[in-house]
């Protein structure tokens, strides 16, 4: 099968599955599945920057919050339907990410990580202080000043799930393209990539803006589902912790890793919540899992599984 046929098949299959689930599942399951897809998208976006561009951001919760707030503020203050704002919110966040990226990419490694984190804290503090953003009380979604008449979870879920499939397909194509290969070359050897004429700065900025837009889209969709947004929730560190742990556990620098990591992340949470464990205990388990995975298989579970199956295959052929 050609890569193009594979991509098309994946898109059609994913779209059909998303549409079927969106129509047939009950609202509770859809809400949970939406959250799963949101985390998958966020992790892919964080991974794009960390796993493929080699820059660890400690401030990606910023873009989740920005996406959500952009949508709420725009929808509440205009009569334009939220579906249009849902498409425009990531563009707004992306537009903000360009100047931020131009600044923080002066910073390297630890400085970049801290710079991003401080930027996120500053925006969160401003949103908390300003009255036009609703302050600490937050905002309720009232498109054009009216209460929401119907629950959006079916459309949102379809959009999110189809968006995830499209994102994975697009990332596959991107990583196989000349630009994508240049990005991988840059991660493995920045000096050599620079010498071979790759514009490292522009490439990093491109990846950074894509990463920001993806997080903003996921954040906007998530908070439309929730119908309510507040700074302490939208800019919380837990978004970042989820992105990081899911990627690290599943496999940094792979497309399957974040998917696998998210499934584990949510499955463990659901099992533990049903068994009556507290949120704190859940985070302890997830943290311990991340530490163990890092020490045993530092590239993550998915690459480890691949190594293992390769090994057994080779054994079987012998």
């Amino acid at each position: 099968m050609t890569p193009r046929a594979f991509s098309a098949g994946l898109l059609i299959l994913g779209g059909a599955l998303a549409a079927w689930s969106a129509m047939r599942l009950d609202p509770g399951s859809l809400y949970l599945l939406s959250e799963v897809v949101v985390i998958m998208i966020l992790a892919q976006m964080w991974n794009l920057l960390a796993g493929y561009a080699g820059q660890i951001s400690l401030g990606h919760q910023l873009f989740v919050g920005l996406g959500g707030y952009a949508l709420f503020l725009a929808a509440n203050n205009t009569g334009v339907p939220i579906w249009i704002w849902l498409a425009l919110a990531p563009v707004l966040a992306g537009a903000l990410a360009i100047p931020l990226g131009m600044v923080v990419f002066h910073l390297k490694h630890a400085y970049f990580a801290v710079g991003m984190w401080v930027a996120a804290e500053i925006v969160a503090a401003l949103v908390l202080k300003w009255s036009w953003t609703g302050g600490s009380a937050g905002l309720i979604l009232r498109p054009g000043g009216e209460s929401m008449t119907s629950n959006p979870e079916r459309v949102i879920f379809f959009g999110l799930a189809f968006g995830l499939v499209a994102l994975v397909v697009a990332l596959r194509a991107f990583l196989a393209s000349d630009t994508g290969l240049a990005l991988l070359g840059m991660r493995d050897n920045p000096q050599a990539a620079e010498a071979s004429g790759v514009n490292v700065r522009r490439m990093h900025l491109l990846v950074f803006v894509i990463s920001a837009m993806g997080c903003a889209a996921a954040g906007a969709a998530y908070y439309v589902n929730a119908l309510y947004i507040s700074p302490s929730d939208a800019f919380q560190m837990n978004w970042l912790i989820a992105m990081m742990f899911v990627t690290v556990i599943g496999g940094l620098g792979t497309l399957t890793g974040p998917i696998l990591g998210t499934v584990l992340f949510i499955a463990i949470r659901e099992v533990m919540t049903n068994a009556g464990y507290s949120g704190g205990t859940y985070w302890i388990v997830i943290g311990a899992l991340a530490v163990v995975v890092l020490l045993v298989a530092p590239r993550g579970l998915w690459p480890a599984i691949q190594d293992l199956t390769d090994y057994t295959k080779r054994k079987a052929f012998r």
Partner: peptide, 25 residues
């Protein structure tokens, strides 16, 4: 030992989450 500076940094992040929640508990 893994030579990749990302690994110890991420490990300390895991430790931080564990310690914080142990303290909460």
């Amino acid at each position: 030992h893994f030579r990749d500076p990302m690994v110890p940094m991420l490990v300390t992040f895991g430790i931080a989450v564990i310690l914080r929640n142990l303290l909460v508990e």
